[in-house]
């Protein structure tokens, strides 16, 4: 790897990206990769599960991407990126040694404090597993702080399930109940077929609704139906947390794009309790 390039910037200026290098690239699915990024200069950026970074592809633009692994002691972090638009297509194509601009961390994280001492239910749909992975890792690191830990994953096909290399390691643990369901199985799939909200009913008998904290991330429709399932089983709205996706450009509540009602999802979100989101989240096109 070449020496990191020097970068002159002001630390107080929220608009300037920090230089990072791609150190590893892992293909997750046909259109999704996970990039491991390493800071090219000191100091590195912090970050907690559920927060996001703004990633710059040189000369192309900038996009918000949640932390799938939070920075370790050397500042190394991971992002799982799906090629959807021009910037993400370029990010997905990066190779080890390539430059990435990083700003952040931005937004609210998953409320792990609230989850401590309670049953935790993580529900992810598709790429929504990325921000929940960092939460899962934080929980497993201090497993004894939590009661039942349940992870429900939905994916389009078996080959669209993220983090398949490490999934078996989590599945083998007897202190985590991890269930995967797919919409369209292939010939080799021996697991569940169906949508992720259905799994809530399956696991509901194993958690105590009044002592459960749920973190949900996935497409809006999947989150809506999952919330309803959780409500039906008695989980209260202020213990159901959603991570929302919107157009985010500045990350600090100045550019105005990510508004949902009174919220700037880049700083008031992306993780918010359903109790606060409720009056606005289900209003169409708000």
């Amino acid at each position: 790897m070449t020496a990191p390039g020097p970068v002159l910037r002001s630390l107080v200026d929220p608009f300037h990206p920090h230089p990072y290098r791609v150190v590893a690239r892992r293909r997750e699915t046909s259109d999704t990769v996970t990039l491991r990024l390493c800071p090219a200069t000191d100091p590195y950026l912090p970050g907690s599960p559920g927060q996001f970074m703004m990633l710059t592809a040189f000369g192309i633009g900038e996009v918000p991407i949640s932390l799938s692994r939070v920075p370790d002691r050397s500042g190394m972090l991971e992002h799982t990126i799906r090629a959807v638009g021009s910037v993400t297509r370029h990010l997905v194509a990066l190779r080890p040694g390539d430059w990435v601009g990083v700003r952040g961390p931005f937004g609210t994280g998953w409320p792990l404090d609230l989850a401590r001492g309670r049953d935790v239910l993580l529900v992810a749909g598709g790429l929504g597993f990325a921000p929940l992975r960092s939460a899962l890792e934080a929980i497993l690191e201090r497993r004894q702080d939590y009661r039942r830990v349940t992870v429900l994953l939905g994916a389009r096909t078996p080959s669209d399930v993220l983090y398949r290399q490490i999934l078996p390691r989590w599945q083998r643990r007897n202190d985590v109940d991890l269930r995967v369901t797919v919409d369209r199985p292939d010939e080799r799939w021996r697991g569940q077929v169906g949508v992720v909200p259905q799994l809530v009913s399956q696991v509901a008998p194993s958690f105590e609704p009044t002592e459960t904290v749920a973190f949900i991330c996935g497409p809006d429709v999947m989150m809506r139906f999952t919330v309803r399932e959780l409500q039906r089983h008695g989980v209260s709205d202020d213990r159901i947390f959603l991570s929302l996706e919107r157009n985010m450009q500045c990350g600090v509540g100045l550019c105005g794009h990510c508004q949902l009602g009174p919220f700037f999802l880049c700083k008031d979100g992306p993780v918010l309790p359903y109790s606060r989101l409720m009056p606005f989240y289900e209003v169409r096109e708000l």
Binding site: T2, A3, G5, P6, V7, F15, H16, F58, W99
Partner: peptide
């Protein structure tokens, strides 16, 4: 907001 140049050994702002 900023201008940057890509060089052989990095990106210089």
């Amino acid at each position: 907001l900023w201008r940057a140049r890509r060089t052989a050994d990095g990106v210089l702002e």
